[in-house]
Design a protein around this nucleic acid. Structure first.
Lengths: 218, 218
DNA sequence: ACAAATTTTTAGACGTCTCTAAATTCACTT
DNA sequence: AAGTGAATTTAGAGACGTCTAAAAATTTGT
């Protein structure tokens, strides 16, 4: 498995999700910031190697083996992110680029021991679940803050947009995973929300609220 | 800097040492397990980029910039080795291969924070010195156990051969860095040594003694 | 259902790194 | 000082991953 192959498989997984959906050549090219012709070439190679089914002009879908491979790469990426934040004091907006490199290191022992060092974390610093060694991958029960009804409370559990700009914005307003947010009011005009967090009230735009995941309190 | 370029620079440094020695094409090819013609190609490229001086038919010598680059790669390699041993319970014969991959990760912050996490170690698990961030690199005062006079004591401080086979052999006989060894007798016939370590006496071959570095007690 | 627009593939090329085989240069010996 | 053997370089090619431009297939709109 070359680094490039791994990146393609990861991208296809992100586009297609856990179930074997058909993913378009163009979509992959866009996601990977490359050209459709390069995708076609790689699709043939990955199909030959058994990672995916390639139907010319139709698209591509990961095989079980391909999905397993994708999960293993995602597991590495997310474990390294946890490591960077917890052990090396990186902030959550700095980890992605470095984890992007670290995820390609080949050593099963390394990743198992890292998992152990970190005490088998279930989620990465952005709230995304970490697949287990045997490929179990459970999406968390969550919803967008923008979809939370008025007068209900939820705990921040993740972000949809993981861009550095968004994460730094959240830092600035002290919004972090684990904090409880109550929705006080929704402005019909621009869909902005009045919220209450740790006793303080603030107002956030729809763009923010629709990129923040919360878990509704029972 | 591609991964391949980094590997060449590292290999040339290992062959030429700290001072700018002329290193032969063939020697590099052997060290890197590649062909001399590949070395020639790369030598031209690295010379263009300012890492070394290339004199056709004569060999290659690192520039100051090349030496600085080599030290930075070696620093990364050895810090990762310390990490693997101290934080992930790798044994000293398992670290090389993984560190060989990790040394190519590009992030200055990563390596500085790793250094800090490990409390700024001076030596790697094999006793080799770790260059500082600003490229200071001091060889340790040491000599081969085979050259230690009779009836003197020394502390194990390093290994010359870092092969897994040798390191496992040392483990088996409980020989480890930090232990004190006294040379009791030298057999003229095969140059084997009678030594005393932690109260116990044992006999070791010349091959072992000439791959183990000790620091003579004052 | 046909033409237009879009998507996808093919063909040909380039950069990187590698190799083999052949040619060249160097260094040593007599 | 020439010849021989070793080291080194050159020439040409292949694998990988990428690209552009052109061709082919599919989808869309009317």
């Amino acid at each position: 498995m070359t680094r490039s192959e791994e990146n393609y498989i990861k991208a296809i997984f992100h586009l297609g999700g856990n179930t074997p959906t058909l993913v378009a050549t163009n979509a992959i090219a866009e996601q990977m910031e490359t050209k459709p012709s390069s995708v076609t070439d790689m699709a043939k190679k990955l199909a030959d190697k058994g990672f995916l089914n390639y139907q010319p002009y139709q698209g591509v879908s990961l095989t079980d083996f391909g999905i397993k491979t994708a999960l293993s790469i995602i597991r590495k990426h997310r474990l390294w992110e946890v490591f960077l934040v917890r052990k090396l004091d990186f902030s959550w907006d700095e980890v992605h680029e470095v984890a992007e490199q670290l995820e390609h290191i080949k050593s099963e022992k390394l990743i198992d021991k890292l998992d152990e060092l970190l005490d088998f974390p279930k989620y990465d610093p952005h709230g995304d679940p970490i697949p287990t060694k045997d490929g179990i991958f459970l999406e968390r029960d969550k919803q967008l803050l923008s979809e939370l009804p008025i007068n209900t409370k939820g705990v921040c559990v993740g972000v949809k947009d993981t861009s550095s700009a968004f994460l730094k914005f959240l830092d600035k307003y002290n919004i972090a995973l684990g904090k409880t947010i109550e929705v006080l009011e929704r402005e019909d005009f621009d869909e902005s929300l009045h919220i209450k967090m740790e006793g303080k009230e603030l107002q956030i735009s729809h763009q923010i609220a629709s990129n923040l995941y919360v878990k509704k309190n029972d």
